[in-house]
Design a protein around this nucleic acid. Structure first.
Lengths: 235, 235
DNA sequence: AACTTATTGTACGAATCCGTACGGTTGGGA
DNA sequence: TCCCAACCGTACGGATTCGTACAATAAGTT
């Protein structure tokens, strides 16, 4: 770890802040469906992903769920720690296998206490994540399944290496909060328009610009805010 | 202003923190539909509501909007300032007329710089607001119009004085992100079950417990988190 | 190769909600 | 008092999504 990691937050820290965190960073490989946080439980580690994808998922009685936050190499988990809470408000788990650095929660909060610049920088990221969630609330209310699917694929593509996304219809359905067959049909529509290729367990992004157009405003604003608050991001 | 204001945040500040803010607090009456923040524009004031209601609203091209945050006497506007941004990410305006204290953004950020306890307390509130937004994203994806309506009325009632909510179907439709006649029909259903009374421009809460039940999990979790993070709240 | 499991394709009636239109009602102002 | 604007009730076809069920296909295992 002589040069900076791929994670966009770690990459942009000042030298001092990075050095203060560095001795506590542990490299880990995160398997599909690994749990990073559980709702109501203390946060054990903060994860900075270098690749792959994690989802923050909300559960509602009875037996209903949907994604309320997406985190990849542009971000981190454990944002509640920055806000003065030691517990996770939601479940968070790995959607695409990931190489990541993690820090113990205590070490992380220590580092925060010792560096105002670290804290204020990461707070800007948490704000960008909040903006993402607000947009999710908006599009969940007002966008159609195919538009939301296009948005999700674009967000996933922004965070993935290469243009192949390894994801099943079943999980896409949870992410979007719709039926599984609804995803199958929506994917077929996108494929019919040449925007993606769809195979068992994976989606191939063929035409980003076309997807953005189809998303019809569902994609873009949170990404623009991230770039303003943090820096370059996406494809 | 010898005793503490009705606003739950101001009320719970330490004496020192409250005194540091007090000289800069200006009492204002906020008319219906007053704009408190505009997306992309610098934040001028931070508002601590003592009564009434403000909504954070997301816009999506083309010409579509929905509420992504609700703020009343339990909270404040201008949370972006705590996150290191000086601009509003979304529009925010008054849904129910309000008595409020406001502070100029510069004075507010000065006070934050000078008190770690003030900052960390208010960050916990911003976190509670984020939790609210995450739940909104969830229920927008998975709850029906009548369930979301029940949730909204309960949230509004938590923040209102008395049980009469002065709100039109038209605005409720924007809040929920649905058609206006959809609200009319859903209100009739709630009224038919004796949960509310509905008159021109106002809704009367008759049976909170019944509304909670009808909301079917849409109401509650964010409110529980607020109580854990900040303190007592609601009816 | 046979078997098992995960994943995907398809179908269909029902429920929900949309877009839109239009008439009725209410309340405040000229 | 009359008028006007805002607000509410209702209707209707159509689009969308749901809930569910079941068959077909692909991948991995024995």
């Amino acid at each position: 770890m002589n040069q900076r990691p791929a994670n966009l937050l770690l990459k942009q820290l000042s030298s001092d802040d990075f050095e203060s965190l560095k001795p506590h960073l542990e490299e880990v490989f995160l398997e599909l469906h690994s749990s990073l946080e559980k709702a109501g439980q203390p946060i054990k580690y903060v994860y900075f992903l270098n690749s792959g994808l994690a989802s923050v998922v909300g559960y509602k009685a009875p037996a209903v769920d949907a994604e309320v936050g997406m985190i990849g190499l542009e971000g981190m988990t454990g944002s509640a720690l920055l806000m003065g809470d030691d517990r996770a408000s939601h479940d968070c788990f790995i959607q695409m296998t990931s190489n990541a650095y993690r820090v113990e929660a205590d070490m992380f909060t220590n580092a925060l206490r010792q560096s105002e610049t670290l804290k204020s920088f990461l707070l800007r990221y948490v704000h960008a994540l909040h903006v993402q969630t607000m947009h999710t609330a908006l599009v969940n209310a007002r966008s159609k399944t195919n538009e939301r699917l296009a948005r999700w694929l674009l967000m996933c593509d922004d965070r993935a290496i290469g243009e192949r996304l390894f994801i099943t219809h079943e999980f896409l359905a949870v992410m979007l909060g719709v039926r599984r067959p609804g995803v199958t049909v929506a994917l077929q529509e996108l494929e019919g328009q040449g925007l993606i290729g769809s195979m068992r367990g994976q989606v191939l992004i063929r035409d980003r610009a076309g997807l953005v157009k189809l998303a019809n405003g569902a994609y873009g604003p949170p990404e623009a805010q991230y770039r303003r608050l943090i820096g370059a991001f996406g494809k």
